[in-house]
């Protein structure tokens, strides 16, 4: 297959621009990142700087990869990370636009790589249950019904890739934040810190420069793990609950 790529190139501290590359003789079975590998190998051989992009596991679980492809975070295929998107999903001969996540809270480092440490800051503010190593009771001491465990697992699947932020017109991080808050609010272990957790995490989210949620729903559509927007409603309840009790 052959493609024309329009790729965002940006050096640290400089302004970026779209640059055109030919991407020829690509196997339909290659993943999107393998296609970029092929283009990069050719760029290096030609003495040019290859396109910088983030990736690691290449099996859709580490959350390291991700770009906006033809206007969609992680490309147009739903429920898929960029590393799991295959070239057979594209039309032969087509033009493909590749750009980094765009958000004030995710500054571009170079080309397609952005700084997502703001997500870590949100978790640092309260995305955990405080329990010292070695002080835990027996694993079966607190029964948890299968439904609750399954619901907690549904949200715990978040890979922290940032697609929700990239897709949101307001660059809001509500889906990401609400997924963690929901997981911990559902489980009995999460109850003691429940009230302050939502407040601390939402504050950290605002401090990091993420926008507000105005219910566009783009986040849910872009999420490669298909995490539901209902979690945002739960976050709001947790947050309001906490504010009232205070």
């Amino acid at each position: 297959m052959n493609f024309t790529l329009k790729v965002w190139r940006q050096k640290p501290g400089e302004k970026g621009k779209l640059v055109t590359y030919d991407s020829k003789d690509i196997s339909a079975d290659a993943s999107f990142l393998e296609m970029l590998d092929v283009v990069n190998e050719r760029l290096i051989e030609a003495g040019q700087t290859p396109i910088a992009f983030d990736h690691d596991c290449r099996e859709g679980i580490c959350g390291m990869c991700g770009c906006v492809v033809n206007g969609f975070a992680h490309g147009h295929q739903s429920g898929t990370t960029l590393c799991q998107l295959h070239m057979r999903e594209f039309k032969d001969g087509s033009v493909i636009y590749i750009e980094p996540w765009r958000s004030k809270a995710f500054p571009v480092i170079a080309d397609l790589i952005v700084d997502r440490s703001a997500f870590d800051a949100i978790i640092t503010a309260g995305g955990y249950i405080s329990i010292r190593t070695g002080s835990a009771p027996d694993g079966n001491a607190i029964p948890i019904s299968k439904d609750v465990a399954d619901a907690a697992m549904d949200v715990a699947e978040c890979i922290g890739c940032g697609a929700c932020v990239a897709a949101c017109p307001n660059a809001s991080a509500m889906l990401f934040t609400s997924a963690k808050i929901s997981q911990l609010a559902l489980l009995p272990q999460g109850q003691p810190e429940r009230m302050t957790r939502a407040q601390r995490m939402v504050r950290a989210m605002e401090d990091a420069g993420f926008g507000a949620c105005t219910n566009h729903g783009e986040c849910e559509a872009a999420c490669p793990k298909e995490i539901s927007m209902n979690n945002i409603a739960r976050l709001n309840r947790e947050f309001i609950g906490a504010s009232v009790k205070k």
């Binding site: 835990a136 465990a149 399954d150 489980l187």
Partner: peptide, 22 residues
Amino acid sequence: NNIIDQCVAQGVPFAREYGGNL
């Protein structure tokens, strides 16, 4: 065995049986 206890306490959503046990 301590590992499982620790992880459950952290909120790791391990698979459960209908009765609520791991």
